[in-house]
């Protein structure tokens, strides 16, 4: 009896906690909505960059954290999204909104191509194939001068002026981020997302209950590519220029570090990691030119002492605390 009683109590506690969490998140969004009136122009730009990067990192985490796939080159889809907008707007007469709608699909298409071949491989081999094919895309972008502007990239992309004011780009990136996170969260919690997680934890068992694991992984890969493409569009709104460095492999490594920092096992971890890294790079950049050294040391400490990430650590502590209460 006492056991079931304590279970009920624990369940209530969990419910209460998730209600608190939900309220806190709504509060956070409201806070972000009124924040611009207190921020300097530069801080506004920085926040918009954080929102964009958070979306990029969260999309990677769908594959990395929930899918358990060692995806080593996610920045490609970010870059393809950005380049798609840039090319469509400078080479064709398409208006911004049309280009912005096409771009994520272009990213998803590239993700389908890369994913199609990659999901047949396992572990490190999967990672290496994503890396090879991703770098292939980078090399094409880097060399195709006529289309992509090569090394120089494309600048002064004519994004409508309504969107380019700092306030507008802040709100646009915030709204797109919140909506995308809601969709991604729904995906993670859907039967599809649960199968993905099951396959991460045990591929043979998931396969033997009749699930086509590879197809699910491919779908997750394409979805992740699609949302990275959206992040790429947002990047264009903020910066109005693209360069090949956007899809070089060390950009992907940076996004991986964000996921690790916030916590790959948590939904909001990558967003937190993105925010922290963008802020840190700015703060540290003021004092020293050796930001990468600092980043390397941070990464070292994270891997050695906090592999579950900041949010992972916090939620682990909360869980063990509630378990103790029940006992």
């Amino acid at each position: 009896m006492s056991c079931s009683y304590s279970t009920v109590r624990a369940e209530k506690r969990v419910q209460k906690r998730s209600l608190v969490l939900r309220l806190a998140l709504i509060g956070l969004v409201l806070f972000f909505l009124i924040l611009p009136s207190f921020l300097s122009p530069y801080a506004l730009y920085l926040m918009a960059t954080i929102f964009t990067t958070a979306l990029l990192a969260t999309s990677l985490n769908l594959v990395l954290g929930y899918g358990g796939l060692m995806h080593l080159h996610h920045a490609v889809f970010y870059g393809v999204g950005a380049y798609a907008v840039a090319i469509l707007m400078t080479k064709t007469a398409l208006p911004f909104w049309a280009a912005a709608i096409i771009a994520p699909f272009a990213a998803a298409l590239v993700a389908l191509l890369i994913g199609w071949f990659s999901v047949r491989l396992r572990g490190l081999y999967f990672g290496m194939l994503t890396l090879a094919l991703g770098q292939l895309v980078w090399a094409i972008v880097y060399r195709w001068n006529a289309l992509t502007g090569g090394d120089d990239g494309i600048h002064a992309i004519p994004v409508p002026e309504v969107l380019t004011s700092l306030n507008a780009s802040y709100y646009l990136t915030l709204i797109v981020l919140v909506l995308s996170l809601l969709v991604l969260f729904a995906i993670v919690k859907s039967p599809f997302g649960l199968i993905l997680t099951a396959a991460r934890d045990n591929i043979p068992r998931t396969g033997s209950i009749g699930v086509n694991v590879k197809r699910h992984q491919l779908a997750a890969f394409v979805i992740a590519g699609f949302f990275a493409g959206i992040a790429g569009v947002l990047f264009i709104v903020i910066d109005r220029s693209v360069a090949p460095s956007l899809l070089y492999w060390n950009k992907s490594a940076e996004v991986l570090i964000m996921c690790l920092m916030g916590g790959m096992g948590t939904f909001l971890g990558p967003s937190l990691g993105a925010a922290l890294l963008v802020l840190l790079s700015m703060v540290v950049g003021v004092y020293t030119e050796y930001w990468l050294l600092v980043l390397g040391l941070i990464l070292l400490v994270l891997v050695l002492f906090l592999p579950q990430g900041i949010l992972g650590f916090v939620s682990g502590k909360l869980k063990s605390a509630s378990r103790k209460e029940v006992d």
């Binding site: 991986l256 570090i257 390397g296 941070i298 994270l302």
Partner: peptide
């Protein structure tokens, strides 16, 4: 990722 942290560190040390 641990070895990648060394990439970052050595890169700046060389600089």
């Amino acid at each position: 990722l641990l070895t990648y942290s060394l990439v970052l560190i050595f890169g700046d040390l060389v600089k």
